[in-house]
Structures are given as structure tokens and as C-alpha cells.
Design a protein around this nucleic acid. Structure first.
Lengths: 340, 340
DNA sequence: TTAATGAATGTAAGCGCTTTCATTGTCAAC
DNA sequence: GTTGACAATGAAAGCGCTTACATTCATTAA
């Protein structure tokens, strides 16, 4: 409370040591004698001393900042991932610097340049579809880098995620196995991950000889429940005999369910619905909605842990982590009565 | 690409001026001659020069960082507010530093101390229920401060939000006017804002002589759709003749609707449902759900704009902004057929 | 006893900017 | 032709830390 903020030299003076020793007591306690260390600790406490991060960053040419690039803040998938990231970054005393690429490679390059210039402790980037320039920036960033949201054979350095293609494949296959033969695809905001899900959908149907391009309904708009209603309407208007949908995400799936209720289309008997991500509410909808469960918060947590381990020089057991997914089968796809 | 990152002095040398001039060209362009300014601009572009924020912060004892304190990252209400905040902070070239108080005054004090020590450009804090110490820290922060999420007569400096109490009052009153007489309250995570909504609910019922304490069902858990189902079950188990609920938020309301469907309780005839926040999906549920619409993203945007205006010395017309709310009446409370 | 060793600490030179103050040059007014 | 005012620029002193290197001192080995 007394006037100005205490600085390192104030602490040093009060503890009867040099500034260097205080700095060491803070950064590498093991090199200062226990007695001195304790004395310094007390003074710091008494003064309520907090190091000036700018000065530290400037002097040491490194920071405690983890930079994160996501393509969107609107998407609630990223909200879960970010929550995971913040949760562990916080407890490990790293700051998080968030930036939004708006699904643009160019923006990503620019943001990366800024980030890298600030010598962050580590970098988290979304996906594996960076431009060659962005990849180069990441390779030369001079800090650990981790990609999230996907799997891939050729990560810049580390990667944690799951296979969107496989998730969609499995979901679509499930619909077919349940007896749906005209399975449509509903997708909003066709980013790279959505594209991969579309691939998985296509592959699964082609394998059964059931693929029909016209059953794919997409929009560049961001996904919402309302949009799910609209896309279903659009699909049904085409009158192609669709009897099920694989939705690119759960918002759409819920919207589809609502729209089916409104049109008195019975789910799952007349129409099957499968979502993606398994939001909590899928389990309690009526009927409950089948979805591909993904581990979003865990992905964020894991990414930061791996990153920090590498930052702090600990060995990272496995630089490529596939968190997988799980198809959670519920009522919305039980055309065939479940065997008990 | 060539080796190291260019620094201010490199730019200065290449432009044939002193470092001071380059610094000025960046910070207050109006004081350097147009010719020199242009030359510097070119060199900066050519070198891809980006100022080192740590050095700048250290030298100028101020930063471009806006600190934000929220009580939770899990809450999707805050997600919307944060989106608004990031959106405008980004375009105005401010960095956002997010911290989570976990609904704890003590954590808030600690975080505030850290933030204030870093001389942020501005501070955004949630609510008006700070501890006296936190208030003192804010008053002496040496930067503009804005409180969000609520209204109040005695803001630390600026405030933007709405009245939770009034919103709840109006919603509850609406239920009563529709002919529901045993209106319950469902609440999760009883934070200050929830408490105010509970007050509004109580006042509205007391005004009609319909208040019954036993109709209040709450839990400290974070709200989810599933929790809405559970709370309704708990309420109905009490067998108090409840014929409507005012839910503390839309997640709960949706869960209540799902549970009613499951129990074949007809909404709105036998049971009325009203939510809070008006999430997008409320409009397309079946029946559509009445809710109190709040302007969350706008609140974030507005807060940052006011903050930045003040940071940059522009006059802020009104330091206390009430964004209000709007009761959106939908099917879930239409016990009495709507007049056409 | 002495030199070598190593642990603990101090000294001082920056890190890359900002900003105060001083200097230079230009132009209008007298 | 001076003088003063003002605009444009430069010189230099930090901002609060970190860290390479130097110093001190107690041990230990020879």
C-alpha cells in the first residue's frame, strides 16, 4: 500500500544482498543458500513484491507467454479447448495469449510473425493446414510448438487431437448399419476439419455403394441450432428420400431434431440423426441423440502439458497424441430396436 | 527471414535517422515530418519490423494490455461476453489478459494485485460485489476500470450491464399473469447474479401473495441441461403443486423442457417454463421457450469501447450503461392462448 | 601448509525501447 | 540584419530485470 510498487533492488537492499542474488532466488532457488533464500522470501512477502514481467522478458529474451491461434471464437468447440488450456496454463504460471485467425491463412501468418517476434515460451496452433510460410515460421519460432484438433503424420513438432475423418466414417457407418440407406450430410462453416468429416462420410457411404452427392447440404455460415432447422428444411425440400443425417456438429443435430418434431417426422423410426462432439445436452434430448464424443477440454489440457514439459526441458514421451473419439449410440439412431 | 529480428535502431540506421525519431514516428506520427515518416514507414515494411512489447512496456511504464477478471470460464454466458471483448480489443490493438477468480474474493484480490502491478492499460471486472480491498486496488489501479454484468449506483468508475433483479421480476410476473400460480425457481451455481434473480423472483411473487419458499430449488453445481432435468425431478418429487418454473438460465430451462417431455407433462398447458439469457436455441425448441434476452456480446464490446475511449483520453459520454433486457415471450408460457 | 576446487555472492553490462532535454534550422516580425 | 518562436530531430539517460564473469571464502587434497 505504501506508495510505489517495490522492485527487485528494494527487495535486495532490505534483504542485505545484491539484486542478482534475489533474481537467482526467484529463478533458480537451488543455487542460493537456504538461509539467504529464506530471508529473501520473507522480504518479498512483506513487500508484496511482484516481478515486472516486461523487465524480465526484456532482460532474459523470453517470456512466460503461451501463444494460441484459433480460427474462431464463436465456435463452442474451441471454447472447450480453451477452457482446458487456461485451466492448466494458470496452475503452471504461464500466461495465455489468444489470437483469432478467422479461418484465414494470411491472418495466421501475420499473427504468427507477431507472436514469434515476442519470443513466446510456446505456441499452440489449430489444425495442420498451415501455409508453407506459417510452417516455416513455426519451425523457426525458437520455442516448442504444438498443433491441436487433428492427427497427422507430419506435425511441425508435437500434435494432439483425433481423426475427424474416422469419427465421421464410424458415425456414418453406424447409420447405415442401423438400416438407414439415404444418409445425408449437414455441414456449416466448411473448414478443414469439416471437410475431413465430409470425407469420412463419403468414404463410408461409397464403401456401401450408397453415396449420393445431392444429399450433402452445407453452408458457409457458422453453425447454430437454428441453422440445423434450416438445413434440414433445405434437405427435405430437395425431396431426395433422405432418411437420416450425419450432422457436422451437435448444434445442427439438435436443430434437426427440433425441426423433425415440428414436422411430425418420427425420430428414429422415419429419420435418424447423428451429431458430432457429444455436447452434454445430447444425452437428455428426446429422443436422446447419437453423437461422436470428442475430448475437447482434455485436448487443451494435454496440449499445454506437453508444451510446458518441453518448455521446461522435460522429456515428452510421445509427440503425437491421438485422443480418439467414441461413438455414443443413443435413441436417435435406433431404427432397429436395440437388443437387450 | 535474414537472421535476427530487426530492432528499432536497425530501422533508424537504415532510414538515416535517430532511434528517437523512429519511436516518435510510431507513437506520435504527427510530430515527425511527412517525408521522414514515409521513409521510416518503408524501412519498417521492408524489414518486417515489429516493436518489442516488453521493451516498450518497460520504457514507457505502460502496456497495451487489458486485464479481465471473470469468475468462471465454464459459464457460456461469459463466453459470449468474452467474444465481444476480444472482437473489439483486437481491432483496436489491445491485448487481452484473462484471469479466472473462481467465484472467490480472495483469488480476485490476488489477481488484481498482480494485474495492477503490471500497469495494464485498463481493467474489466465482473460484477459489483468486490471485497473492500479489491475495490481499493481498483480505485488505485492507475488505469481505467469498468465493471460488467450488472448495474449499480456506485461503480468503481464505469459500469455496463443490466438488472438481473428486474429481469427475473418481469419474467416471474409474466408467468403469474399467464395464470400460473405455483411458480418455482430453479437455480444452479448461486453466485451474486443468481441471487439477484432470485430476489426478483421472490419480489414478484410476494407482490401477488404467491411466494412459497419451498418452491425454490437450487444447487451449487454449475448449470447444465442435464442439471435442469434433475432439478425439475427434485422439484416435482416435493409434490408442492408447482405449475411453472423460472429458470436461472436457459440450460436449465431446456433441461426442464426435456424432462417434461419425458414425463408427458404438457408445456405450456400443465407447466410453464421461462429461461434467462435467450440462447439462440430457445426459439426453435418445441415448444419454443420464453426467456429473458440479454445482450452479452454487446456488453463485452461496449465495455471495451468505453474502456479504450477512456484510456485514450476521449470523453466517455455515460459511465453507467444499462443495456437492459427483453422478455421474449414464446410458446412455453402460453397457458392462455395468445390473443391474435 | 598451500594450492586447487567449488559453492555462494557480487559487479556490471546490457535487453530494446521511450522520453526529456538540448540542438539545429526555418521563418516571420521588427 | 536581428531576434524570437517554433518545428524537427538527436543525444542520452534510464525502465527493472537477467546473466556472464569476477570475486570471495571455506573445504579438501596433496
Amino acid at each position: 500500500m505504501s506508495g510505489k510498487q517495490a522492485k527487485l533492488s528494494d527487495v535486495a537492499r532490505a534483504a542485505g544482498v545484491s539484486a542478482a542474488t534475489v533474481s537467482r532466488a526467484l529463478r533458480k532457488p537451488e543455487v542460493v543458500s537456504p538461509a539467504v533464500r529464506e530471508r529473501i522470501r520473507q522480504v518479498i512477502e512483506e513487500f508484496g513484491y511482484v516481478a515486472n514481467p516486461a523487465a524480465r522478458a526484456l532482460a532474459s529474451t523470453r517470456t512466460d507467454v503461451i501463444g494460441i491461434l484459433v480460427p474462431s471464437l464463436t465456435n463452442n468447440v474451441f471454447a472447450d479447448v480453451l477452457r482446458g488450456i487456461y485451466t492448466v496454463a494458470e496452475t503452471r504460471h504461464y500466461e495465455v495469449q489468444l489470437a483469432n485467425t478467422r479461418y484465414s491463412n494470411l491472418e495466421e501468418e501475420n499473427l504468427l510473425r507477431v507472436f514469434v517476434g515476442q519470443k513466446p515460451a510456446g505456441l499452440i496452433v489449430t489444425g495442420i493446414d498451415q501455409s508453407p510460410l506459417s510452417r516455416a515460421l513455426l519451425k523457426n519460432a525458437g520455442c516448442p510448438v504444438i498443433q491441436i484438433m487433428e492427427t497427422g503424420d507430419d506435425p511441425v513438432e508435437m500434435i494432439v487431437g483425433f481423426s475427424h475423418r474416422k469419427g465421421a466414417y464410424e458415425a456414418t457407418q453406424h447409420l447405415v448399419c442401423q438400416g438407414y440407406s439415404r444418409v445425408a450430410f449437414l455441414g456449416a462453416r466448411m473448414d478443414h476439419r469439416t471437410q475431413r468429416r465430409l470425407e469420412g462420410y463419403r468414404d463410408a457411404l461409397q464403401a456401401k455403394g450408397l453415396f449420393d452427392e445431392r444429399l450433402i447440404v452445407t453452408t458457409p455460415r457458422a453453425s447454430t441450432v437454428t441453422l440445423g432447422c434450416e438445413l434440414l428444411a433445405k434437405l427435405l425440400d430437395k425431396d431426395l428420400g433422405a432418411d437420416a443425417v450425419f450432422c457436422n456438429n451437435d448444434d445442427l443435430a439438435l436443430g434437426v431434431l427440433f425441426e423433425c418434431q415440428r414436422r411430425r417426422i418420427s425420430v428414429p423410426q422415419e429419420f435418424g440423426i447423428c451429431g458430432f462432439n457429444d455436447l452434454e445436452m445430447m444425452a437428455v434430448a428426446n429422443p436422446s441423440i447419437t453423437s461422436v464424443r470428442t475430448y475437447r477440454q482434455e485436448m487443451g489440457e494435454r496440449a499445454v502439458r506437453m508444451l510446458i514439459d518441453r518448455i521446461e526441458g522435460k522429456p515428452v514421451e510421445e509427440p503425437r497424441v491421438d485422443l480418439g473419439f467414441e461413438l455414443i449410440v443413443r435413441e436417435s439412431t435406433q431404427k432397429r430396436p436395440r437388443a437387450y
